[in-house]
Design a protein around this nucleic acid. Structure first.
Lengths: 184, 184
DNA sequence: GTATTTATATAACATGTATTATATAACATT
DNA sequence: AATGTTATATAATACATGTTATATAAATAC
């Protein structure tokens, strides 16, 4: 058989880059094949169908998101930097943001679930000490800030992304302080 | 010529209902025609192309949204009831919510623009009196609450809509109080 | 009443996408 | 070296959608 030029990884990589650069609707078999410079066959030999490939792209997107956020979180300002990172993600990685947060259903049933899903438990404990608040109260601040941040992020991702980083940082800071003050 | 059975209004109405019931991707010429029980020709005789029809559907959606919100706003609790109304819209009119707020780009450049676009100036003045705050401060509360509300609404619209009305009302109330307290 | 206009239907064409059937050629096995 | 295996290409099929060309029949104009 001819030397294997194309791997599952190459296909997934190209598909993810298409989604990142042009939105998830760019992930169509012809685009993937053209980008690699091959026919459509290799795509179907590594993925059962396009749906499977898109599922895999979603997994890559999640990894990418986690790395993006993780690389920007600062220990000294956990919640605030995490909020800013999420907004930056919405602004600079709009296509992946939309893929992860505006299209996919993740079946959350309560805001507690959202905390379980998004929240960082370690951060909660650490913050409780720093702010001299109960963990319960920090958790509430956390949830409120996640919601607020999601509001900012969504507006930026869907609104054309022309709100400056400074302006969004200011509004996040304001919300953070308000939520903490409300717990005191 | 045969009696005119089909009007522009009928077409637009059916298209809007398709979007409302099944999402904007249901607005395709065949669905519209089948729903009316006619061929595709009438669609093209009243709209230049499908894009024009979709534009018109967007206009209907905006009208529908305004009526929905307006019908639920209570004079005694302007901001809070408006916030609750927006969340209810996201929950019970998910498809139209997505059409208006998660797909269409509206080119906002600052949070001030958002206020100009969404905010109700009269409400601001009224609230300033009620809360004994400057109009400037009420405007800030307004903007913060719009952002927070949009966070809740988006989570509900994309997450499968199983957060109870009570739970979301509670969280909106908490945010509202926090933002007001922060201004005092 | 005949001719004309036009609302609607029928049906064709174009395009984009997913998927599959068949062909081919390069490597592996013997 | 002959044979078989398989990675990839070519090309066909199927389907959904948008759009347009042609046909038809009912109302209107004269």
């Amino acid at each position: 058989m001819p030397r294997q030029r194309i791997t599952r990884e190459i296909i997934l990589d190209v598909a993810f880059k298409l989604a990142r650069g042009g939105g998830s609707e760019q992930v169509v078999v012809k685009n993937v094949a053209d980008e690699i410079g091959c026919s459509v066959q290799p795509v179907y030999s590594y993925f059962a169908n396009m749906e499977a490939l898109k599922e895999a792209v979603l997994g890559e997107a999640m990894k990418f998101y986690n790395e993006f956020i993780y690389s920007r979180v600062e220990k000294e300002s956990l919640l605030e930097s995490m909020a800013r990172a999420n907004v930056a993600f919405a602004k600079y990685e709009t296509n992946i943001f939309k893929l992860l947060f505006l299209q996919k259903l993740n079946g959350l049933n309560s805001f507690n679930d959202i905390y379980e899903w998004m929240g960082d438990k370690q951060a909660t404990a650490q913050l409780a000490g720093k702010l001299s608040l109960s963990e319960e109260k920090v958790k509430e601040v956390y949830i409120m800030l996640i919601i607020f941040t999601h509001g900012v992020a969504t507006m930026i991702a869907t609104g054309g992304a022309n709100i400056s980083d400074g302006e969004s940082a200011a509004v996040l800071e304001k919300a953070y302080r308000a939520f903490i003050k409300a717990q005191e």
